[in-house]
């Protein structure tokens, strides 16, 4: 299998799908000539032309609204929001329309829309451009949320999202674009939505994470192994549909769990994951589930402070050790 970056894997998924299905169009700000702010749409304009790769005016709400209309008109739009932070401008179209129209219209139409949006912190882009908004989308029935951690999953999940008839928020992590991994070449390689991945097996404790947090969790597990601690790492891959079976089975086996989320701690998705583990495994848990989360502050601009706000390998290892300690 060739090795490629997360960015190139996403790019390849777009190209393969667009070659396969002429009803797929890509639209967004600076996606055509400029090839995307993160260069994810590189080569698309050259290969597919401006009818299928459209630069739009700076109108996030209408990029989604137009995608909703285009989907009802028979296309499969892949919309790019320059960053997930700008999804806030489009929340009415995302939550009130994209998520609800199929249901409100009595199933008359599918909305096969994929909204790609890079996000996450760690690039020193300050409070308005470093957010992790996944909980917002996961909270809303009617939209799927995919958050790949590896290049292979980025490719396989994006292809599944594009082929799926549900609207999906496909949330990419800006700090993962240059990460590398083996990616299957098969154009029919798909990663199903709603299937978590056990990235590493272990027996002492289960770490549940997603996106870049899964990458950090793997690093933490490798560190902890040096201390004789065996961690299982479950990468959720999609937040909706949520594969509860995999992490519940794992927590039942290990008896302990740590949930890692990049978003704000208060009412963050980790609280729901932790609750599900408590609800399903209460009798077999050896310790309460612990959460590692972003701090409840607007992201500081300072690099030093920003680092404190985002879970790090050390905060994950510390949390794991605390759960395993007698006094916890």
């Amino acid at each position: 299998m060739p090795e490629m970056t997360y960015r190139d894997a996403i790019n390849l998924a777009l190209k393969e799908e667009m070659r396969r299905d002429p009803s797929i169009v890509v639209l967004g700000e600076d996606v055509a000539l400029y090839e995307g702010s993160f260069k994810v749409t590189r080569g698309l304009l050259a290969e597919f032309g401006e009818e299928r790769v459209k630069d739009t005016p700076i109108s996030e709400n209408t990029i989604i609204g137009v995608s909703v209309g285009a989907a009802m008109g028979g296309l499969r739009p892949v919309a790019e929001l320059m960053t997930v932070n700008f999804a806030l401008l489009a929340m009415d179209q995302i939550v009130n329309h994209m998520a609800k129209i199929r249901s409100m219209f009595g199933g008359q139409t599918y909305l096969p829309i994929t909204v790609r949006a890079p996000g996450g912190g760690g690039s020193q882009l300050a409070a308005q451009h470093s957010q992790s908004l996944e909980t917002y989308f996961m909270h809303c029935p009617g939209i799927y949320v995919a958050m790949p951690a590896t290049p292979a999953d980025a490719k396989g999940l994006l292809k599944s999202c594009i082929r799926d008839n549900n609207p999906v928020m496909f949330l990419e992590h800006e700090l993962l674009y240059n990460s590398k991994g083996e990616v299957p070449e098969d154009p029919e390689f798909l990663v199903p939505l709603g299937k978590a991945a056990v990235m590493r097996e272990g027996k002492d404790l289960t770490i549940v994470a997603y996106s870049r947090m899964s990458v950090l969790a793997l690093q933490a597990a490798a560190e902890l192994e040096k201390d004789g601690i065996s961690c299982e790492v479950v990468d959720l891959r999609t937040l909706n549909p949520l594969d509860t079976e995999t992490f519940i089975a794992s927590a039942r086996r290990t008896g302990r769990a740590v949930v890692v989320e990049e978003c704000w701690r208060t009412a963050g998705l980790g609280s729901d994951i932790a609750f599900r583990i408590h609800e399903a495994c209460f009798d077999t848990l050896l310790a309460p589930v612990r959460r590692v989360s972003g701090l409840d502050v607007p992201m500081p601009y300072s690099r030093k402070l920003e680092k404190l706000c985002i879970p790090q390998v050390e905060t994950i290892t510390a949390a794991v050790k605390e759960v395993l300690s007698e006094k916890y």
Partner: peptide, 16 residues
Amino acid sequence: THIPHAVGIAMAAKYR
């Protein structure tokens, strides 16, 4: 809020 939907349907019609 349906104005963008109309624009999108028109975009699809033009494309097709």
